[in-house]
Structures are given as structure tokens and as C-alpha cells.
């Protein structure tokens, strides 16, 4: 099929898409957006999290055809030019990144949390990020980053 959707604010159109392939595959292999990561391909790890019409989803579980005519935002679409989103900035500063493979999914999931909750409590953060596995950091610095990003967004 020819797939048309809006990705990171741009209209995109790709041909020869098999409707059953995943949105993750389309983004990575057909649109040159490999920021979203494939680590389990069955919705267990959260590394491929993107926004679909403003709702965070595991893009490995979304069929390409389901994205037709919809809006997608990936980790590549969160910074404004050189200006990092406060969530991205906080992850760098707080040491919440190690190997970085789970990071794109965590950035999107955290971004979504802070859109919904200005000052999430620690249990709310843990709940919101429960679907994002990380094998390197042990999560504590991720919590620090979320709190820092929340503080900065609340002030700005």
C-alpha cells in the first residue's frame, strides 16, 4: 500500500508498504527514523514508544496500515532545532542515560507523563514508566531526571 501519515510535523508518503508490517519497521526502515528502537517486538520493553495522535504506543504493536492518515511523533521530533526538550536535557544532566537503547522510549513516555501531570509523585512516575525496561541504569537516575524535567517545565 501507499502509506500517508504525518511524522514529526511533516507529511510523509511511502510506497510498497505491506499493511501488516509494524509502524516501527516503517519508521526505521522506510522513513530513515531509527531513533525508536526494536528490543522485543512484542510490546514488553517500551523501547519503541512513539506518539500516535498524541497517545504513546509501542510502535512495534501498531500495524503500518493503522497509521494511515494519522499523526506520529518520535523521539527525533521532540527537540526544537538545537533546543532540547526539558525531558531530554534532564536525562543527559542526571546520568539517566547509559547505553541509550531504552532511552528513546523513556523520553517519549516521560514526555507524555509530564504533558498529563505537572508534578507527578514518585509512584506515579514509576507507574507511568512501568512499561519501559532498562538494563543499565537501575531507574533511579531516570526518576531524578523526570523530577528535574517536571520542575523545569513547571517553572517555564
Amino acid at each position: 500500500m501507499r502509506l500517508r501519515c504525518e511524522v514529526n510535523g511533516e507529511s510523509r508518503e511511502v510506497d510498497d508498504v505491506w499493511p501488516g508490517e509494524s509502524l516501527l519497521y516503517v519508521l526505521r526502515e522506510r522513513m530513515g527514523l531509527p531513533g525508536s528502537k526494536n528490543a522485543c517486538e512484542q510490546g514488553e520493553c517500551g523501547s519503541c514508544t512513539v506518539y500516535l495522535d498524541g497517545v504513546p504506543v509501542c510502535s512495534c504493536l501498531v500495524a503500518a496500515g493503522q497509521a494511515e492518515g494519522h499523526e506520529v511523533t518520535t523521539v527525533e521530533g521532540l527537540a526544537e532545532g538545537e533546543q532540547l526538550d526539558p525531558v531530554q536535557q534532564a536525562f543527559v544532566e542526571k546520568g539517566a542515560v547509559q547505553c541509550g537503547f531504552c532511552t528513546p522510549g523513556l523520553i517519549v513516555a516521560t514526555h507524555d507523563l509530564l504533558e498529563r501531570r505537572e508534578r507527578p509523585s514518585d509512584p506515579e512516575i514509576r507507574e507511568a514508566l512501568a512499561g519501559n525496561l532498562c538494563r543499565c541504569t537501575g531507574y533511579e537516575k531516570i526518576l531524578d531526571a523526570v523530577r528535574l524535567a517536571a520542575d523545569r517545565k513547571a517553572v517555564s
Binding site: R28, E29, G32, L33, P34, G35, S36, K37, N38, T74, V75, E76, L78, A79, L84, V87, Q88, Q89, F91, V92, E93, G95, V97, G100, F101, T103, P104, I107
Partner: peptide, 21 residues
Amino acid sequence: VVRVEGRRKVTGQARYTADIA
């Protein structure tokens, strides 16, 4: 010192093996 490649990792610009076309 802040991790030097951190920016590339939080913006999805760090290229892992399977990311490279």
C-alpha cells in the same frame, strides 16, 4: 563530566548497528 554522547542518545541520533542503512 556530563556524558559526551548523551545528546545524541536522547534525540535518537546515536546510530546502533541495526540503525545504519
